[in-house]
Simulated scan of single mutants.
Amino acid sequence: MLYLCASHELPEGQSRGFTLTQLKLLVVRRAGQVYAYENRCPHRGIPLEWQADQFLDESGSLIQCATHGALFLIESGECVSGPCAGQELSLIPCREDDRGIWVDP
């Protein structure tokens, strides 16, 4: 497992991007749970954000591809709207403990 950040550095309802060597990640906290995905749109293979750490739609309830507007469920990574509907973001196993947030790429 690789350390990403302290728990307080990912507040409720927020997202953050990370780069681990060659792997770009996006991490979101929703309803106290942390979700990690590869930061790569299944439609074109490009990063999802248009600004640093900006992965969520205006409502904060879906992950959004800034280039094509595709929308993904935070809990599963499934695309529910846009050019890649039915596809999914690549889930990265993660866990949180008293030391912070960890991923297993």
Rank of each mutant, 00 (worst) to 15 (best):
K24W: 01
G17S: 07
L73S: 01
N39S: 10
V34N: 10
L25W: 07
H43T: 05
T19A: 11
S61T: 06
D97V: 09
A70R: 02
L20Q: 08
E38H: 14
E49D: 15
A85G: 01
P83L: 13
S81P: 04
G77Y: 03
C65S: 02
V34M: 13
L20P: 01
N39W: 06
A6Q: 15
L26R: 03
P42Y: 05
E12R: 07
S7A: 15
G69R: 04
Y3H: 14
A70N: 03
Y35S: 10
P42M: 09
D53Q: 06
Y3F: 15
Q64T: 00
A70L: 03
Y3K: 14
L73P: 02
D98C: 13
P93V: 08
L25D: 08
L23F: 02
G45Q: 09
G82D: 00
E96C: 12
I63Y: 01
H8C: 10
V103C: 08
E58Y: 01
S76Q: 11
H8W: 11
L91D: 03
R16N: 06
G13K: 03
E49L: 09
E38M: 12
C5G: 07
L10M: 12
Y35M: 08
H8D: 15
W102F: 15
C84K: 04
S81M: 08
I46D: 09
C84S: 01
A52Q: 15
I63H: 04
H43A: 03
L20G: 02
L23T: 14
T21F: 02
Q87L: 09
D98I: 10
Q54W: 06
K24C: 12
I63C: 04
Y37N: 07
E12T: 07
W102N: 12
I63S: 00
E58A: 12
G60R: 04
R44T: 09
H8G: 06
Q22F: 10
E9C: 10
S76V: 09
Q54H: 13
H68V: 00
S90Q: 13
F72I: 04
R44I: 03
S61Y: 04
L25Y: 09
L26S: 03
A52W: 04
A70Y: 00
P11C: 09
L62E: 00
G32D: 07
V34G: 10
D104L: 11
E49A: 12
M1K: 13
L73G: 02
Q87M: 08
M1S: 14
G17W: 01
A6W: 03
I92Y: 08
T19E: 13
S59D: 02
E9V: 02
G82W: 02
